[in-house]
Write a protein that binds this DNA or RNA. Structure first.
Lengths: 230, 230
DNA sequence: TAGCTCAGTTGGTTAGAGCAGCTGACTCTT
DNA sequence: AAGAGTCAGCTGCTCTAACCAACTGAGCTA
């Protein structure tokens, strides 16, 4: 029955063709509209918020949410952390997931990246190198590289899912194992990926990405440090 | 502050190393444990349920959830439906997502599939053909094929994400456009994928998968039917 | 011993009250 | 007249208290 309320609110959004950011009925209005108590309305809304379908601004109103992949990041990160603490190789699984996606996309990418994107990627790798010279590569730079690389596919969903996987992986890695990669190797590998993509050599690009992930993978292969002995 | 309650419950699961199915404190216990009212506890739990982190059984108790990708399916399906009704090519984007993942995985698959899995896949394509002879290929059979194909990668996360994307795509497709594919073509393409994988020819397998998705893609290319004019 | 009944536990729902954040109009000062 | 401060009103947030509904298990009955 609580689930039913959620469905009805979702139906309301669909039926009224409400885009992200549109105002939703207020809580009292929803109470009357759905014929349930305020409490039930709120529980349904909270669940929808957790899925990114609804956004609530205190003292202002409830709105159609951004429907981003943010909730997926949460769920995936939590699942990975929980699995890790139970001794599973959940982090490695997550890495393989990223690897599969990125290599799969690469085939459609080689030779198709517009020159301005290539220039931006060049700049990002340059930044990586200057960061590596003084310490470690910033997470933001790494993320930006992977994000910019696939932008030209003109598929927002793809980009968001990739970023979601990246975020989840990064969050869990820094929280749990944090074996910082060798910044120089990271730079070289990103440069190699970029060059391969520029040259339009699909196989070489795939190879470069695999090597990049292989590098991450070996560092996860070490016995996972468990916070304490259960 | 409500968000804080969610985090504390998640932390409780992590700290106590609770596996899926473990009982959680009852609502009154959580009230006392977290120092908040029952209402707040319930809203937090509902949000966690929406993320698959918690499972509630009426009259029985609250438990650690399966942490499956089911919530992601919900969110993705809703997002796709909403986007579709707003005139975006969200369904096509979802299809591209699946295509990218499956082709990316295929490279690691060719020649690695154990013989018993191959036999199972053979049986599935046989079933497809008998189904095609009398009507259309069952969704369940198609799903089972894609699911079985990647089982040998021994990465549960991968399998679940693939199934999640499959589910979301299938649900939205049947709900919205439902242009049933030519069952014969579907069978032939699945057979081709299977043969290519069996032979260990990575490129041919990728080609086969691309053709399969290309088939689906062209059928989505037709102008999306909108239920009515806004 | 088999089956039923009933009390106790758990979550589900409702109601009403007060708190907290934001907006916009009104008013007072400059 | 222009600006800043204030206040009334919306909004969502939290709490308390009570009752309903589903399930379990102990005890009773046949």
């Amino acid at each position: 029955m609580a689930h039913d309320i959620q469905e009805r609110i979702k139906k309301l959004i669909i039926d009224r063709r409400l885009p992200s950011g549109s105002p939703l009925p207020t809580e009292p209005e929803l109470m009357e509209l759905l014929g349930v108590s305020r409490n039930s309305v709120r529980e349904a809304l909270k669940a929808l918020v957790a899925m990114g379908i609804v956004e609530i601004r205190h003292g202002f109103g409830t709105y159609v949410g951004p429907m981003s992949m943010a909730p997926m990041i949460e769920g995936l990160a939590f699942r990975t952390v929980a699995g890790h603490y139970r001794g599973e190789d959940s982090l490695l699984q997550l890495l393989e997931l990223r690897e599969a996606m990125e290599t799969g996309l690469l085939a459609r990418l080689a030779g198709e990246v517009p020159s301005n994107d290539l220039a931006e990627l060049d700049a990002l790798v340059d930044r990586m190198e200057s960061e590596a010279a003084v310490g470690a590569v910033t997470a933001e730079t790494d993320r930006a590289f992977h994000s910019t690389l696939y932008r030209c596919l003109r598929n927002p969903l793809l980009g968001e899912v990739l970023e979601a996987f990246w975020d989840a992986f990064h969050r869990v890695r820094t929280d749990l194992v944090d074996v910082p990669p060798d910044p120089k190797v990271t730079c070289r590998q990103h440069r190699e990926i970029l060059d391969a993509v520029r040259s339009g050599d699909t196989l070489r690009a795939e190879q470069a990405v695999r090597e990049h992930f292989g590098n991450l993978r070996t560092r996860l292969g070490s016995p996972s440090p468990r916070p304490d002995q259960a």
